[in-house]
Design a protein around this nucleic acid. Structure first.
Length: 416
DNA sequence: TCTGGGGTCCTAGGACCC
DNA sequence: TCTGGGGTCCTAGGACCC
């Protein structure tokens, strides 16, 4: 069974026979920092911080040795350096993390195709169909941890439960390098002593709201009438927290979760005041966004601009287009127009960002003007195009290769 | 202590339509 | 002349997560 160890972890260090905890959450331990240590074995055992060593940056990741000094990710680098002046600061290498991430995900897929990636260094696995082949969730969890280490040299922690949320909480309680199985029957007993901040979606603000009402543990939330939680947190938030407090989490492991938006943003080393300098940055960001959208074969129906001023005031402005786009110049044009409405001489811009939202698959609309794709006039394509742009678009001229680069004329008019 | 960059989800108000 | 309710879309802001 599970037990608390000297480091305040909860771990299942002996085999657990349970077969109800078929949702696994695997979370890499101090992922970015651990990847860096693979190339720098001389730093093992030292407090290491991954991040840019500059005024305006924050900690991206920290080894457990650094965390002993109270250093956490998202903490301002200046604060981290003050807390541990001897810490070694290492520049991040995201391509390296991406590569390791792919290697780790491939290990997961050896155990089950039911893998839902969650960010770069975690995943949910539904192992219900793998029990016959690989044994109990406990045995599968241990096998995964061994295989990940053998394949990548990295440690991970595994939580096993009957729902996603409890599995995720279990992995976090078993860190680092642990495994915790929470059988379905033990769920409520496991949850109720936890602090409210253990619940998914309870951050600093919500925690404060709840504690002001005397609600400190998950058990407190569970015994609070649903109506009280709803009036405190809104209909969705109240219902969700009440459900989670009783271990109810209807979300299934979903292998096909696609991106809902694609964006890039940048914080300047020195604030910008010049409108044209901002416009140039917007072009750079627009190009990055466009490239990623084309790679993902999606287009954005809505474009959003984000601006943060010196005093940290943050504004967003967005516009929904008459037809979706993945073209950098077009994204840039909209972003600059949105910015020009806000621009005032003397404004000091700390951050600027561009994001494409309301993503739609590229195929149907692009078939009209994509020179690389041979035009195939099928009934379904015609129907799809007609539904989107109206019948007038499908004039013979627009079907000629070469002329196809032109957008349907009327699609231009009602933009903006 | 002074706050990155990638995202998701929720709320609320207004427009618009039936 | 004054006034309904529901549904959907759009926009802006904020909390939260990794």
């Amino acid at each position: 069974m599970s037990k608390q160890d000297g480091r305040n972890r909860l771990v299942s260090d002996q085999p657990v026979a349970d077969v109800t905890a078929t949702v696994l959450h695997v979370d890499m331990d101090a992922f970015f920092a651990s990847v860096e240590l693979l190339d720098r074995p001389d730093l093992v055992g030292l407090p290491v911080i991954v991040g840019h060593d500059s005024d305006r940056s924050v900690v991206t990741a920290a080894t457990y040795e650094a965390r002993k000094y109270g250093i956490n990710s998202a903490m301002p680098m200046a604060v981290a350096k003050r807390r541990c002046p001897g810490a070694v600061i290492v520049e991040p290498h995201f391509e390296k993390y991406q590569a390791k991430s792919r290697a780790v995900m491939r290990v997961f897929e050896q155990f089950t195709p039911q893998v839902e990636r969650l960010g770069i260094d975690e995943a949910f696995l539904d192992v219900a169909g793998a029990l016959r082949l690989y044994g109990t969730p406990w045995e599968i969890g241990q096998a995964i941890r061994r295989a990940v280490f053998a394949e990548t040299g990295l440690h991970c922690s595994v939580g096993a439960a009957s729902t996603k949320f409890v599995a995720k909480l279990a992995s976090s309680r078993s860190k680092p390098d642990g495994l915790l199985v929470v059988p379905a029957a033990d769920t409520v007993a496991f949850l109720h002593p936890q602090p409210v901040s253990a619940l998914w979606g309870v951050g600093g603000k919500t925690q404060e709201t709840l504690e002001n009402r005397g609600l400190r543990t998950v058990g407190d939330l569970a015994t609070t009438p649903l109506g009280s939680l709803v009036s405190l947190l809104g209909p969705a938030g109240g219902q969700r927290l009440h459900d989670l407090a009783w271990g109810r989490d209807p979300r299934r492991v979903d292998t096909a979760v696609g991106e809902k938006s694609i964006g890039h943003e940048v914080t300047f080393g020195t604030d910008l005041t010049d409108r044209d300098a901002v416009a140039r940055e917007l072009l750079r960001l627009s190009e990055k966004v466009a490239v990623r959208m084309r790679r993902a074969e999606v287009q954005a129906r809505t474009l959003a601009l984000k601006v943060r001023y010196t005093d940290f005031t943050t504004l967003t402005r967005s516009r929904t287009l008459a037809e979706p786009t993945d073209v950098a110049r077009r994204i840039h044009l909209e972003a600059v127009e949105l910015y020009d409405v806000l621009h005032k001489p003397g404004n000091r811009i700390r951050l600027i960002g561009v994001r494409g939202e309301n993503l739609v698959p590229t195929a149907a609309s692009n078939a009209l003007w994509d020179d690389d794709a041979p035009w195939r006039e099928t009934e379904t394509t015609v129907d799809a195009v007609t539904a989107r742009f109206g019948a007038g678009v499908l004039r013979p001229a627009s079907l000629v290769r070469g002329a196809s680069q032109q957008r349907p004329p009327h699609a231009r008019q009602d933009i903006g």
